[in-house]
């Protein structure tokens, strides 16, 4: 959030709170769309494809390509080391 603002820039408290609410709303928004799709397909697990699909339908197509790249890196990281897998397992 600070990156978007210049070094001299500041963010008001009410703005921070509202942005946090926006982000949580964003997450639930995408999740609800993905869950609706899963319900139609009678599945109980949300996959990465579901998330990407929901982003596309909701108008956040700009995020799809960079997210795919991040997903590939994420999977590679998982394959590479046992430490990363342990962390994932814990969570």
């Amino acid at each position: 959030m600070r990156r978007a603002v210049t070094e001299n820039g500041k963010i008001a408290r009410d703005a921070r709170e509202s942005i946090q609410e926006c982000v949580s709303e964003f997450i639930s928004f995408i999740t609800s769309e993905a869950s609706d799709k899963c319900v139609k397909e009678r599945r109980k697990t949300i996959n990465d494809d579901d998330i990407i699909w929901s982003l596309g339908t909701l108008g956040f197509e700009e995020y799809v390509e960079p997210l795919k790249i991040y997903l590939n890196n994420y999977q590679e990281g998982d394959i590479k080391g046992s430490k990363s897998s342990d962390q994932n397992g814990k969570k």
Partner: peptide
């Protein structure tokens, strides 16, 4: 899934 959480 963990991948979905990561993507979001």
């Amino acid at each position: 899934s963990s991948e979905a959480v990561f993507l979001i």
